[in-house]
Design a protein around this nucleic acid. Sequence first.
DNA 1: CAGTGGTCTAGACCACACA
DNA 2: GTGTGGTCTAGACCACTGC
Lengths: 233, 233
Amino acid sequence: MSVKSKTGYRDVKAIVLKRIQDRVWQPGALLPAEADLAVEFGCARATVNRAMQELSDDGLVERRRKAGTRVKKAPLRQVKFEIPMVRAEVEASGASYRYALVTRNILVAPDWLRARLDLAPEAQVLHLECMHYANSNPFQFEDRWINLAAVPDAEQADFTAISPNEWLVQTVPFTTAEVRFSASAASESLAEFLQTPTGSPLFTAERTTWLNGLPVTNTRLHFASGYSMVAQY
Amino acid sequence: MSVKSKTGYRDVKAIVLKRIQDRVWQPGALLPAEADLAVEFGCARATVNRAMQELSDDGLVERRRKAGTRVKKAPLRQVKFEIPMVRAEVEASGASYRYALVTRNILVAPDWLRARLDLAPEAQVLHLECMHYANSNPFQFEDRWINLAAVPDAEQADFTAISPNEWLVQTVPFTTAEVRFSASAASESLAEFLQTPTGSPLFTAERTTWLNGLPVTNTRLHFASGYSMVAQY
DNA sequence: CAGTGGTCTAGACCACACA
DNA sequence: GTGTGGTCTAGACCACTGC
């Protein structure tokens, strides 16, 4: 009499996952069809379908029409990183956030940037260098380029008051982007800004952003020494 | 008479996304309820629900019962990284892959590792150092620790023939893990292995793995100079 | 309390890919 | 052809939460 409610898609997912982990269904093995599982679990096929789709998204099983569902041999797992705004990241750590504009220049896009963003020759860009602090300690140095053809308003914006990141998120949200993580050595000026010895290894993120295919901005974020990025999966 | 089939959840998603991008629904604005949208699009509420759930997963809208669905002000987007196996990553680049075991030792877990993995005092671990090459060029130095209490078979495995990564994926797939990316300076020995100057900035990934809460392994992967990790979103 | 999203159902049709 | 997953439907009930 104590049949604890119905079997939800979460339950189905958990049961199937357990069977995979326990090798009831070994890597490469064919799972029963959705309809059969639905009978076994006493739920609708749609419920099983949702569970299996999520397992497929998670990279644990592989599904093909007619061929059925198989346990992946090499579960290719993927990590999800949130891309936080600097302010949020700093404040989440309990520190107080401060931002400062270092330099601001309008100039013709240098060649490497033209290539990177696929800009026209002589394209005008806004170049900004900024510092982000956590409790007055250097947190991140930002080297940003904004394509003025894509965002002309940027020329009027007051970047001493608002960081380019926040301004851009407000002005052109819902963009697509590419991110690249790497390690780089602190140049002399970077070392001074980040208060670290010249040549220190710095965790660096480069982000390039488009709006409907139109290149908007490119930025290199150099994090202070010791920074690391964590994710679970 | 040319009503091109029915409105699917992909269509709904695309339409809603377009309205958000076009500012028909501005950041922070409240969207119509699912039931209303279903009427407008001429489809079932479940279809709208699926579309909106995906937009929510994608970080573009925020949904709360009773409160309804709102366009996020700061669309916090997330990046998905595949965690490739070294061999696959090297071979995907067109290079030929080679693996070599450098050292192999069984010993009592050092303190930092005990703390990291929450191991018992005097826990036995297998320590492996390995090199991964791409076209005979150093690609990655792997510093791996395996908890023998969790995977006793590891003591018998022939790690001169198979890399610990591949062995572990075969032996204990379907684990959970934590990954941490950072930048570190090449030690003297690391520099030699990776054929780079001592102190060079290296992109480093540390991965810790559990199987049902039981700590399995910890590994630090030091990539050769110049390596970077890319993702799009 | 009442309105919203979250989930489940039973049934249906379709697209695809294997035999 | 035929069996599989992919999707849609109309309806229902539930869980949460703002009012």
